[in-house]
């Protein structure tokens, strides 16, 4: 029992970070599932994180109202970004969102009244593991519901071929705009969750490293189903910890190699609905053929 408790204590924070990263990955997935590659989740996370930290410190609000506020802040940021960037074509969109990440850090650095500037901000509240689980479950439930809705169907159509989708009466821009608002809300909530997990945020918290972590988590897990990003975030967060215990001397190299190998052999990610479908079809075919043989 004691060893179990020890294990929990040792890897509890890794699990917490994995759940926070899952929120970021879901935020990235929200736009990616409509065919837009964007790194702006970092921006939404920064908005949500600093908003939550400041409102907890100065307005004295509780944990869940802070999450709500962060979500709203992120959604507003998401709609602004969508309004400015959606006219760009896909390649420019990716570059523009990366540029926005760089601008975010400079902004955070130069507004010390709001963000604590270079010294960062102590967050006077922490999120209990139970609340984090509930939060992720709630967000996942929303994605599950969306996946099965008209919106989910429309999003997949836009991703496959925007031109074809629009001939079917689906407005690609409208769908993508909605995706950005969802991405913003989830990213903002994730930013707040990170702030409450780390209990300290600084300009470096929301920067390039995070941008690449979230996109890698999303694609590694699989960007064709909402469950993929959650799996991807878990794997990508656990990877350094695992590598540290296996190959401490070259843990970063090992982490890169694992990521590389998975992507080369499973380019559609760990969770791939198409592969599941194909396997099912193959099984049906095999059993059907066996049936004819006998």
């Amino acid at each position: 029992m004691e060893t179990l408790l020890d294990l929990w204590a040792a890897y509890g924070s890794t699990i917490a970070f994995a759940m926070v990263n899952a929120l970021f990955a879901l935020s990235t997935y929200a736009v990616l599932s409509t065919g837009v590659l964007s790194f702006t989740t970092v921006v939404f996370a920064a908005v949500g994180g600093f908003l939550a930290a400041q409102s907890v410190a100065h307005l004295g609000i509780g944990l869940w109202p802070a999450f709500a506020l962060a979500g709203i802040g992120g959604a507003v940021a998401g709609s602004v970004v969508a309004a400015a960037f959606l006219k760009l074509d896909s390649h420019w969109m990716a570059l523009a969102s990366l540029a926005l990440v760089l601008i975010t850090r400079v902004t955070v650095l130069n507004t010390p009244l709001l963000t604590g500037g270079v010294n960062g901000l102590v967050v006077p509240m922490s999120v209990p593991m139970g609340d984090l689980v509930i939060l992720l479950a709630l967000v996942a439930a929303v994605f599950w519901r969306l996946h099965r809705s008209w919106y989910g169907l429309a999003a997949r159509a836009v991703r496959e071929d925007a031109a074809v989708a629009s001939t079917m009466g689906i407005p690609p821009r409208g769908i993508q705009f909605t995706a950005f608002v969802i991405s913003g809300a989830v990213g903002g909530i994730g930013g707040a969750a990170l702030a409450f997990t780390l209990q300290f945020i600084s300009p470096e918290t929301y920067f390039i490293g995070m941008a690449f972590t979230m996109i890698a988590s999303t694609v590694l897990g699989g960007s064709f189903h909402w469950f993929g990003p959650i799996v991807g975030a878990a794997v990508f967060t656990a990877l350094p910890v695992t590598m540290q215990s296996v190959l401490p001397a070259i843990e970063d190299v090992a982490k890169g190699v694992v990521l590389l190998v998975i992507m080369i052999f499973l380019p559609r990610g760990l969770v791939d609905p198409r592969a599941v479908g194909l396997r099912r079809a193959a099984r049906r075919r095999v059993s059907a053929e066996e049936g004819t043989d006998v």
């Binding site: 990716a94 690449f212 890698a216 890169g256 992507m263 380019p267 559609r268």
Partner: peptide, 24 residues
Amino acid sequence: LRSRKAGMLGALITSIAFWIILDS
């Protein structure tokens, strides 16, 4: 990835992997 037509996304991730490896 090119031979599997996996698009820009997969290549971005493998490039991130190489970034981690080569930087380290």
